[in-house]
Simulated assay, not measured.
Amino acid sequence: MTRSDMSDGELAETLARAAGALLLDLRTSSGMAGRELGDAGDAAANELLVTALRKARPNDGLLSEESKDTKDRLSQKRVWIIDPVDGTREYGEGRDDWAVHVGLSVDGKAAIGAVALPALEMTLSSERPDISPRRADTLRMVVSRSRPAKEAVAVSKKLDAELIPMGSAGAKAMAIVRGEADVYLHSGGQYEWDNCAPVAVAQAHGLHCSRIDGGPLAYNCRNPYLPDLLICHKQDAETILALVGSS
């Protein structure tokens, strides 16, 4: 089967896994570290993903963190939204909480996605929602390692939730899918490539995904800035959104 013959979900998963393998090999064999490794990884993974998507889906639009944006995508129904290395700093530091995002927006919604966690040897996909996210009795909330969002900290206190510092957006979102955490509440600023693929995967696994005011997450917008996000178990969404509104 060639990549052009794959379903969108199969393609997203295959490419996320391939980019992850490339990044692991680069980190092991290049002798680079830190910012130098992060920049090299971004460039190499972006070239792999963009080249493959242009070949496999030549009529689709494309938005990548590492490529110059053009407005051609705005007239297209289907737009691939990718982040070649989500968590460049974590990747460069040799950590495992970084990811590769390959998402597909259809009519402005996160329709298809794959998130590779290469250092954990794991790729999660909207095509194969084969995990049932587990909710803990005491809620666990993932937050930024360096700059926890003030709304998340305030809500965690009201919920008596445990805070779990973690790196990339993809790693945080997949922690909910994997049952390692229960809430990802972010208000510190993101772009569409930070959460399109994670949201598609989380939704396929039955989780709630929205803006922190409860509104929908919109993709392929003229300005790709998408600053806030809530991913959690559906049973907790109403309570968390109310707490955000009152904080």
Rank of each mutant, 00 (worst) to 15 (best):
L23W: 12
T2G: 15
H186P: 12
V50S: 13
T14G: 03
A44L: 12
Q203W: 00
L49S: 01
L22G: 00
R95N: 05
D194W: 15
E151N: 14
D213F: 08
S187V: 13
Q235C: 07
M174N: 12
D83I: 04
A242T: 08
A33Q: 11
M32G: 02
R89P: 00
V143T: 05
K77P: 00
V100R: 01
L37W: 05
L48I: 11
G245D: 03
A16W: 05
V199N: 02
L49D: 00
G189H: 09
W98S: 04
L207D: 07
G20W: 02
G38N: 02
K150W: 11
T70C: 09
A116H: 06
R57T: 10
G188N: 14
G188S: 15
P133R: 07
L22R: 12
E121V: 11
N220H: 10
K157T: 05
A114Q: 04
D42G: 02
S7C: 05
V115P: 07
Q190G: 10
E66D: 03
T88V: 11
D86L: 15
G215W: 14
D228M: 13
E151W: 08
G245P: 05
S156P: 04
D72R: 10
G103K: 11
C209E: 01
T239K: 15
G92W: 06
E151L: 15
E10S: 12
L229Y: 14
R211N: 11
Y184P: 02
K157G: 02
S30P: 03
R78S: 13
L74C: 04
V244N: 05
A33F: 06
L37F: 12
A218M: 13
R147E: 03
D60E: 06
E47D: 12
V244W: 12
D107R: 03
M122P: 00
L37Q: 04
R140M: 08
A99Y: 06
K150S: 15
G245K: 11
A242H: 15
W80M: 03
A12L: 07
L185V: 05
Y219R: 07
D8G: 06
L243Y: 01
P148M: 08
A16K: 11
I231E: 01
C196W: 10
S132I: 15
G179P: 14
I212K: 04
A161L: 04
S144L: 02
H205N: 07
D39C: 09
L24T: 01
K172C: 15
R140E: 04
P227L: 14
L63K: 03
R54I: 01
E66S: 01
V143D: 05
G20H: 00
Q76Y: 01
E93N: 11
A52W: 09
L243E: 00
N195A: 12
E13D: 02
A52D: 06
